[in-house]
């Protein structure tokens, strides 16, 4: 049932789905393909920005762990959950 992490990443990041999102620095997101809008929290905004720039999951997690002073474990597991969430909406 649950999509594998790398295929998920492939689908939403590499295939350009993520790139098409209109992301505002306020955390407001608009998906031009579905007409759906979203709000991101601060960490979500940072994560999305890093992923959009083509960073790997690990690099993104590392950056977040440094920025927010949380362990790498915490950062990468919550990042995975975030990615699954994106996968549901995109």
């Amino acid at each position: 049932m649950i999509e594998k992490m790398d295929t998920l990443l492939q689908r939403i990041c590499v295939d350009g789905r993520l790139a098409k999102l209109a992301v505002s620095e306020t955390g407001f997101i608009f998906d031009p393909q579905t007409g759906q809008s979203f709000t991101l929290n601060q960490t979500g905004l940072l994560a999305l920005d890093l992923l959009k720039r083509g960073n790997s999951l690990e690099m993104t997690a590392q950056y977040m762990s440094d920025e927010y002073e949380v362990t790498m474990d915490v950062a990468s597991s919550s990042l995975e959950a975030f990615l699954y969430q994106l996968g549901r909406y995109l």
Partner: peptide, 10 residues
């Protein structure tokens, strides 16, 4: 869209 965003966010 920007107006909607302002209302949504601010």
């Amino acid at each position: 869209l920007p107006q909607f965003e302002s209302m949504m966010i601010d």
